[in-house]
Amino acid sequence: MAEPNWLIDFPAMDDESLRAFNRAIDEAYRAFTRTYGAAIEDAFTPLLRLMVWFEQLLLGAPWWLVILAVAALAYGASRGWRLVALVVASFLLIGYLGMWEDTMRTMAMISVCTLIAVVVGIPIGILLSRSDRLKAAVVPVLDVMQTMPSFVYLIPVVMLLGLGKVPGLMAVVVYAIPPVIRLTDLGIRLVDKEVLEATDAFGASPWQRLWGVQVPLALPNIMAGVNQTIMMALAMVVVASMIGVKGLGQPVLRAVTNQYFAMGVLNGLAVVMLAIIFDRVTQSYGRRLQRYRDETR
């Protein structure tokens, strides 16, 4: 075999070594999966229960009760009837077009994913805002999480946990959590230094300062993060249908593979409607938490 000219051809690893390299990584991960897979799956059982319970609740309840509940939520968040009308109309249309069950499954998934992302993401964001060194270490990880093609997330979670709800949940949360972390950190860092100085001058403890001043004043940014997280979760929930997550993603996937144009568009529009509802409800809730900003007479 002639010696390859490295000036012309890139001096790449030969195929044999590359295969060995990839295999070594896969083997190592498989070994990890065999050793810890069961334990990790057990650790996620409570989450699985929560999700199954919520999904059954939405599917088991009569459709009008669900619409009523979501409408009540929309009213509570916005104190306005326009949002309520939008919610009711969207759900009636979704139901009429036969997508009720899939929509309920997706809604359950998104709600639980968002809940987890917020519960995990806000404390991480708070920690980042308190330490520049921690932030320098975590931000690159968040960058990778946000730019890595979303399909790639599916591989390790499937290897670890197989097909189903929990791996889907993990993939969605990992994909969707960066915005809430970033914007919590940003929001807290942007809180007026003079207001914080005054807070210190009155002898507030770090806890009183965090929950009484920093988090409330960071809310506009935190809410923007939650909002983005929801939108990213909705996008990922379609991708996650590839690993067996039921809901609106599966008909979309079927429509793609079979070229069912109408079916794809309708289910896609149902995702859009869910997105709009989640967006409007969280936004108006966020605005109501910051009423003080409107009062400038």
Partner: peptide, 24 residues
């Protein structure tokens, strides 16, 4: 001890008020 001092011994008024905008 410092927090106790700030709470009970010396309070402060600031040039640019530094009120909490989210409180009445």
């Amino acid at each position: 001890a410092l927090r106790h001092f700030r709470r009970h011994r010396a309070s402060m008024v600031f040039q640019r008020f530094a009120l909490h905008p989210h409180r009445t």
